[in-house]
Amino acid sequence: MIYFDRVSKHYDLRGGGKKHVLRNVSGIIRPGDALGILGRNGAGKSTLVRMLAGVEHPNSGRIERRMTVSWPLAHGVGLQNSMSGADNARFIARIYNQPIKKVLDFVEDFAELGPYMDMPAKTYSVGMMGRLLLGLSFAVDFDCYLIDEVTATGDQRFVARAQALLAEKTRGRSLVLVSHVPEHLKMYCRTAAVLNEGSLTFFEDVDEAVATYKAL
């Protein structure tokens, strides 16, 4: 369960002034929820996800995590470019207290990097990077996965595999997917919310949320 209560976040702008990204946002994400958050670019979706993941702190309000939460899965984040995929996997395994062998095997199997597994990550293509990242994040069992537009990459076959894996991994667990593409939400999510002008509006029905989002 992630519980956030009256969370506000703003950034200081150069030359004074503040940009408010979130204003007094509250909510609960329970085990089993599959929540999609829609918002335009720059609406503060990534900030919200990062705060849910606990890597960024709100200016006011509080966020409590009572389950294991993944790091914000976005393109290329959390990886060290100069290290190989295997070394990245070992590092993730160590800090998330997972058996190294299990993580390595899973990533090798899922990401299909082949010999690239031992090459520095900076030599990877965008697709390889996405596969590695997804493989890494699903190699660790979290109660809640936070995904920031990650499903947009990869070829058809990989997308299908990723969907299957995502469905399998998030069964009985939670998923928070942040996107500006309504179709992705319809694919994975059961409830949805729209982030606009610093406030978050929840909808029981994804279609309703998409309609509201499109009307903005």
Binding site: L35, R190, S199
Partner: peptide, 18 residues
């Protein structure tokens, strides 16, 4: 103070988790 409505777990999940 205006609060956003709390989200509800969907029916499907609450039946599966129960």
């Amino acid at each position: 103070m205006k609060l956003s409505p709390p989200i509800r777990p969907s029916e499907a999940v609450s039946t599966t988790t129960g």
